[in-house]
Design a protein around this nucleic acid. Structure first.
Lengths: 145, 145
DNA sequence: CTAATTATAGACATTAAGACTCTTTAATTA
DNA sequence: TAATTAAAGAGTCTTAATGTCTATAATTAG
């Protein structure tokens, strides 16, 4: 079980946005360079984040992205679900014997998944930024516009 | 994030093995019928479980599979890792800025993953069998050899 | 007003993984 | 010896992930 690479990009992008400048706009080109990924591909991911209202965007000269909300109100769960979707970790088709009743296996998995979600919902982008190494922070701050 | 369908088959197969008969051998054909999956495909999954010493197998007439250990010593985590592998849920390539230090994002994910693993390691096959509905149990018992 | 810049969207290509099937081989037992 | 059953390998098919390329729309600098 592994998250998509896109989820990794999304998490880093949000941390970078919060770190470089929580308020002013940051272009996708810089965000892509920081992660060695193409601008077009990262754009797709950012569009997903925008649709879930995690970032806001502005086109045009000096346009770009910024956090749509305060960094302490955006959690890992928000970001992961925006990119991965909200499908359950395991779903039984409930064919054959267990057709009429809920699958016990699935019930157990749901509990575990809920625990993980609770944990992820407790981690904010602000928290990550605060724990960043100083050298990383100062590097990112150099790229403010 | 979703487990493979094969993981679902594996979990059900282990529960069926424990339920039908913890000691005597059960052929893959029956196990496949119960889940509406082909015998050859389920065979592959069972071979993975055998390699991790979760089931033991015997070829030949009246051969088949049985649990390799007692049902209370086999956990969801054992089965899931046997099928899914043991790759981390998220790994940063640690390029660019964060090259020299561990990625904070990854560290947070590792904690969550460890929590999930602990939960999964606490759920045994025996526990599932005990919680099965009586109608399911009696249905499965009809297929003892 | 025009040109440059930037996000958005769609179509497309490539790759990898998952989910199988088919066939052969090896082991075991009736 | 023949039937049965697991193991293993090769191959197929589908789907999803990971991108690229191009065109369009919105915004702003000049």
């Amino acid at each position: 079980m592994k998250y998509a690479q896109a989820t990794n990009y999304a998490l880093h992008t949000m941390v970078y946005l919060a770190s470089i400048s929580p308020d002013s706009l940051v272009g996708v080109r810089l965000l892509a360079e920081l992660q060695s990924v193409s601008t077009t591909y990262l754009s797709k991911i950012l569009t997903k984040l925008a649709k879930e209202d995690l970032v806001s965007s502005s086109p045009g000269v000096n346009g770009g992205y910024r956090l749509a909300r305060s960094a302490d109100s955006i959690t890992f769960l928000d970001i992961i679900e925006a990119v991965e979707g909200r499908q359950a970790i395991l779903t039984c088709q409930l064919a054959g014997v267990e057709k009429e009743e809920a699958c016990v296996i699935q019930q157990k998995m749901e509990v575990g998944e809920q625990q993980l979600k609770s944990y992820l919902a407790g981690i904010t982008i602000l928290e990550i930024v605060e724990e960043l190494d100083e050298s990383v922070k100062s590097f990112l701050l150099k790229h403010q516009r």
